[in-house]
Structures are given as structure tokens and as C-alpha cells.
Design a protein around this nucleic acid. Structure first.
Lengths: 222, 222
DNA sequence: CTCGTCGGATACGCGAATGTATCGGATACA
DNA sequence: TGTATCCGATACATTCGCGTATCCGACGAG
């Protein structure tokens, strides 16, 4: 549950004016606040959560919060960055697992395993999407995240083009990567409503193979 | 802009205990409140809107609100039902426009025209999705809506199977309808971030033709 | 061990939003 | 036109959450 955030704050923090010493205690409470915030956000939704609720869940008082963040939005942003980076690494890992050749069905399985694992994360992520949709600054950040991920996928798809020819509808590997992302987002929407992770995985697998292979393959996942 | 809501409240309202006379004035203010709420929700997001803001935008005081709704959630729900029903009708209309045969590309164009028209509606709809994701009762309602829409699409796809064979990956027309919905949801996600409606339409067109036609068609929309 | 600094707790004042109770004008119907 | 009813406005009390200022214990350096 607890994401490892013990490393010093990554560059580009908008927070306090760089205190000379970064105490161990500070890092610990910051991490606890983030973890607690994740649970509370997942349970009630960002819009319905008060600062005090987060603090209570983390076992701190509001003083601790204001010592670490200026506003709930800032915490939310930090939380998203933290978790999203972890996921992105895992996806990159799952994509790199094969040798130079890409076994599409296997890679699809591994990636869906990572992406459709945690319903709570999907909830928080969607909250963040809604948030970003109304704040151009945040939207830019999210778009960059997505673009980086898409780049990794496209690169991987391109490298395997000899083996499994991609459909021509999309202009090359980049278009195909776009399609992969869209399929993932689409499946996510349904998953948020019916909460059936297994079905979502199988369904995403079908969609991806349908999108990524020219001829239809009769490989019903489940 | 103003959705026609002058008809008496549809059956199944959870609101006040059926006043004997439904005054014209009442219906009018209720509709104005709903319209104002739409604008405010779209602009700021459901979670960041107060009852008073809605009333102010509608030109009423809080008394009017409490006379028509018990809570903001109730208004939100009513708003969603109203608009979603309108959209559903429009989609059904766009699907039925051909004769008995379905011209896939044309139908796709018409449907995307309807579905990706109003960014504000997408914002509100996504807010509602997030809302539903945390309330099983509301989730059920939304799932039923989606299921009805999907049924209409599947029925239409099935009726045209002779002309354009569907890929075999999905089990028949129903699976294909699922795919259509997923593609729509996926494109929506990206659209919420980059706000580029035209690109979204073209992109959705590509995705749908890629999904619905067996062989790849070299029809780059833009 | 001691001291200086840091981080979180506590207490306070404030503003915003809520829900209710009551009032006066509008509306429908005879 | 008169009147009973309905609807929305106004006023009020209350609660909730926020941000700040201050204090004390913890931590780290020497």
C-alpha cells in the first residue's frame, strides 16, 4: 500500500522555499499524508474531501499539513505525480521484458496486468483527469505524461513491426500507440462502473489484439 | 442552450411528495435551475459548486432551490437524466437515418457529430461518471443507460451484417457495439485534455472504421 | 550532553455554505 | 374579481472548514 517516497523530493517542487536541511521526520510525515490522502480520495472523491479528513486519516493535525503543502490541490498534484511515475515505470518494465522481439499477446497480458490492477488508483486517476480538464496548466502536465507513455509504446511497437504487421489504418506505430491508449481509457470507463476487473482485463486484451493485428485472431482470452 | 424541460416531471422522481397542482411557474424555475446548473457545473466541476452559485446563475435565491430539490446531488442526477435522454434520442435518430441498410462510414460521421459536439456536456458527463463510480445506486442507472445505447448500436450493426462483415474477434454484433462504446470513451478522455474537437472526431472515425471493418481501409479522415 | 533549529500540535478568529422558519407576492380557479 | 393555495424571497442560527499565530517537543550538529 505505502508507496516508497522516502527519497528526497524530486526536482521541481512548487512547495516551501527549499529548507536547508530536509529532516527525516519531514519526509516520513509527508509520505504518510500522501498515502492517507490516496485512501481518502479513493473513498470519497477529491471534491468531497477536506484537509482535516486527510490529516485525521494520516494521524496528524492540520498543522502538519500546512507545514508540508500550501493547498489540497498541491497535495493532489504531488500524489498523482508520485503514483503515476511508479505505474509508468512498471509499464515500461513490462514492455521491455521480452528480448528485442515483441510477443504481442504476452506483452498485452503483462501490461493489462499492471494497468488494470488497482481500482482505487483508477478512481483517483479519473478524479485527476476531471481536475485537469478544467485547468490548462495541469492538463499540459497530464498530456505530457500520456505522451511519454505513448512514446514508449510506439517505440516498442515499431521495433516489432517485422513480426506482427500493424493495420494500415493508423499511420504507423505512433497511430497504433494512440489506439492502445484509447482502448485502455475506454475500458477503464466501463470498469469504473461495473468494477469487474477480470472482465475488463479480458476485454482489453480482445480490443488490443483486434486493433494491433491485421487479420482477426480467434483468441478469446477467457 | 436551454433544453426543453417544460413537460411535466417524468415518472420516478424522488422529489417532493407529488403536489396536487404542478404550477407552470414551478416547472419554469425548475428548468432554469437545471440549465444554470449545467453551465456552472461545466465551468467549475460538480465538486466545487455551491447551491448558492447555482441559484445566483439562475437568478433565484436559495429558497427556490430548496423548494425544488432536496440536495445538490438530486439536482445533478435530474440534470444528467435530462441531457442524457436528449443525446440518446439524437443518437438513435442518427442511427436510424439510413434505410434498412447501414452505410457504416456515413453513420459513423453522423454519430460522432452528435456525440462529440459539446465539450461542456462531456465535462459534466465525466463528473457524473466519477460520481457514479462511488455510488452503486447511481452506477446502476448509468450502466442501464449505457446498456440501452449499446443495444441500439448492436441492433443497428446486426441489421447491416450482410454488407459490411464485422471482425470475428468480438462475438457478433453485441461485442462490436461494446467496442464502439469503448472507442468513444477512449477518445473522450483525450478530448477532455486537449479540447481539440475536430481531431477527436477524425480520430474516432479512424478508430471505428478500424474496429468495424475486417480489412484495413486507407481512409485517412483528415 | 547541550544548544539551536525544525516540525508538528493547539488555539483562535473568520468567512462561507447550509438548512429552516417565516413572510409577502403570484397564480389558479370559481 | 375574490380567495385559497402555492412558490420563492428573506432572515436567522449553526455548523464546518480554512488559514494563521504561537508554543512545545523532537531532532541534528557540535
Amino acid at each position: 500500500m505505502a508507496v516508497d517516497a522516502t527519497h528526497p523530493a524530486s526536482a521541481g517542487e512548487a512547495a516551501a522555499a527549499t529548507p536547508g536541511r530536509v529532516t527525516k521526520r519531514r519526509v516520513r510525515t509527508r509520505a504518510k499524508l500522501l498515502d492517507a490522502a490516496f485512501d481518502v480520495f479513493a473513498a470519497k472523491g477529491f471534491g468531497r474531501v477536506s484537509i482535516e479528513e486527510v490529516c485525521e486519516a494520516a494521524g496528524y493535525s492540520r498543522g502538519a499539513f500546512y507545514s508540508n503543502f500550501a493547498t489540497l490541490d498541491e497535495l493532489f498534484f504531488a500524489l498523482y505525480r508520485q503514483r503515476a511515475d511508479v505505474i509508468a515505470e512498471q509499464v515500461a518494465g513490462a514492455l521491455a521484458l521480452d528480448g528485442p522481439d515483441l510477443d504481442v499477446p504476452a506483452a498485452v497480458d503483462r501490461v493489462t496486468e499492471v494497468l488494470l490492477l488497482d481500482l482505487d488508483w483508477l478512481l483517483v486517476k479519473t478524479d485527476f483527469l476531471v481536475h485537469a480538464a478544467r485547468d490548462p496548466e495541469i492538463a499540459r502536465t497530464l498530456l505530457e505524461h500520456r505522451s511519454r507513455l505513448r512514446g514508449a509504446i510506439a517505440e516498442r511497437l515499431g521495433r516489432a513491426q517485422g513480426h506482427t504487421a500493424l493495420p494500415a489504418v493508423f499511420g504507423g506505430a505512433d497511430g497504433a500507440a494512440h489506439a492502445v491508449i484509447a482502448a485502455y481509457d475506454g475500458v477503464t470507463t466501463q470498469l469504473l462502473l461495473d468494477k469487474d476487473v477480470e472482465r475488463a482485463r479480458a476485454w482489453l486484451g480482445q480490443l488490443l489484439t483486434a486493433l494491433l493485428t491485421e487479420g482477426a485472431r480467434t483468441d478469446t482470452g477467457h
